[in-house]
Write a protein that binds this DNA or RNA. Structure first.
Lengths: 344, 344
DNA sequence: ATGAAAGCGCTAACAT
DNA sequence: ATGTTAGCGCTTTCAT
């Protein structure tokens, strides 16, 4: 592999000049710059990142933290891809590379982050899998590495975050169902430690009150955020002596298992039970009946995450002067068939 | 952030000894080593990766290449997570970190890889999104960076690869459907450039011949590998004057849209049309009717990918002496309800 | 068993 | 505008 020394020798100029030319410094002759860039291109020279990082103390790399090993029911799969693309569309403007840092199930997330930070692998981090009490946030706040969290947390150290509008979704859903005459509305929330469950549940309660509906703890169902979880929830729901007429899901994947369990009893969403899912994924439309759920642009979310992060990084914040610290990402109702019917 | 110099000063010994102690060199006093490790732990010292990389010419990092921006219909989402976990379970034994390298839709994959390789970001690569003719493979073969491809390619430069058993799936499926009396069996393949489509289609043809069934090009349907694609395919299928009685899907996500379109005509998979999906994801069981498809352990696949890669890396190949270059990953039929019925 | 020092590739400060 | 050189943090060779 070719180094800057080789390139300089090849051109018969000093490595200093080569470096300056490649880094677009102003104090370099136009012709020289051209020659250098051309030679670099021809010989396929790209700066060794370790050399640069060591010298500059910066890696030009942003890390996107996730937890691998989808067994735990999050499986936010398709989600990430589009978000990643949005992130990259911003970072690429500043020649920042995005890498995904998957923390294995076998490793403690905080230990993992400690290693990443200490090794100086990235200049900034995007955090996911935010928990209600989150040691990752606590740790990162102590270091001075810039980061932005996807998801609110009660562990709030004045760090920037963006979260989905769980309140809005819960409220709009309950309002809508109440208007259709539903009195007993269940809610399916995830059983893991993520913060969103709590937020969603609280908004659900508030919205019930607003609509003069009674809260019944029997109607709060817990399961994992996937198809299986939906099946379990439908099963619990069917066993209730006083069944709800509607249900609100914290994760759209749950709909699959829910529909399945209903069909086993010859019941149908949108006829026997009103169902509202959470995120309007590409799949929502393909359910039968199609799932009423909430749309958001994941790519735009990625863009906003990137901009928020950059606004906290000294080298870039001039580009993004007035970013908010916390931001609730709006979601828009997409009417489906799954909550079509009215209660007399 | 603390450096090895600080640590050495703190302990009143030379940085050479500290380095040796931390790297488990034999020629260091037991007590010294203990003291160093303890101090490192206390002060939270972790070696700066750039410094190490620069000196050693190695990064102790493996890259997992993917293409971000799921619009293109691959959306292999949940897939990756489990594979990643398998990979990490192997790499962690050797203190190798795994990072995911998402190539944005806006960037050419080969250019992206060139940058990654030239910057010396990783010691080895796992390639995905393998194409029939794949410039990524061609490029990587020219460099001397170790890599393993997930997916076969006609661009074969004696590089290691692992691929799913498309032949086996096609053959078992056709045999099974033929045995149930089906004479007209359609196949839904992906419209992108990935190699798997070709392989799947060829095996399908071969298996038809083996079962004395006629090949009809009308029964080869193309669409994107997602719910939407399944909808489109069902639509095409319904328009055929001479409809097939069974269909084989190259991607299980297609089943969603297919079921949907069928339901719009009051048709049902497993009663009016036999459907066999590809991978038995967690979702398959949650379809109604449940989807006959093929199981594989993604975690084990990840483990095998990792081992294959290591077997080509000089520093590790002694641990994995006799790995094959190419390997077809077996898949096991899981009977569902979607192909239940018999043709008289 | 330990210390001293070279040098990996790069950028930036200083010199010219 | 260009050349020269120190030094980022680390490992490893050569002394001792």
């Amino acid at each position: 592999m070719i180094s800057i020394k080789d390139l300089a020798k090849h051109l018969n100029i000093s490595i200093g000049t080569v470096s300056r030319a490649l880094n677009d410094r102003p104090d370099v002759n136009k012709d020289t710059r051209l020659k250098v860039l051309q030679a670099a291109n021809e010989l396929g020279y790209v700066a060794n990142q370790s050399g640069r990082s060591l010298r500059q103390g910066t890696t030009n790399t942003i890390g996107f933290f996730i937890e691998s090993g989808g067994e735990n029911g999050s499986s936010n799969d398709t989600f990430s891809m589009e978000v990643l693309d949005g992130l990259q569309s911003v970072f690429s403007k500043y020649h920042l590379d995005l890498i995904v840092l998957p923390c294995s199930t076998e490793e403690d997330a905080e230990d993992y982050l400690k290693r990443i930070v200490a090794r100086r692998l990235v200049d900034g981090l995007i955090l996911t899998a935010t928990q209600r009490i989150d040691s990752k946030i606590e740790f990162l706040s102590k270091t001075n590495i810039p980061f932005v969290a996807l998801g609110r947390s009660e562990t709030d150290n004045k760090h920037p975050w963006i979260d989905l509008d769980f309140e809005g979704v819960a409220q709009l859903s309950i309002d809508r169902l109440a208007k259709k005459g539903h009195k007993r509305i269940a809610i399916a929330i995830s059983q893991n430690n993520l913060n969103l469950g709590t937020i969603f549940l609280n908004s659900y309660k508030d919205s019930l009150i607003k609509n003069n509906l009674d809260f019944d703890s029997d109607l709060v169902l817990h399961a994992s955020s996937n198809g299986e979880g939906g099946y379990v929830i439908a099963d619990q729901l069917l066993k209730l002596k006083n069944r709800p007429t509607a249900i609100l899901l914290v994760h759209e994947l749950m709909a699959q298992g829910l529909y399945r369990r209903l069909s086993e009893e010859n019941l149908l969403a949108g006829r026997d039970l009103a169902v509202i899912g959470f995120r309007n994924s590409e799949q929502a439309k393909m359910f039968s009946p199609s799932l009423t759920s909430f749309r958001l642009s994941l790519r735009d979310l990625g863009i906003s995450l990137a901009e928020t992060l950059l606004s906290t990084m000294p080298a870039f914040q001039r580009h993004y002067p007035n970013k908010r610290l916390g931001y609730i990402w709006p979601m828009e109702l997409v009417e489906g068939e799954s909550d079509r019917f009215l209660i007399n």
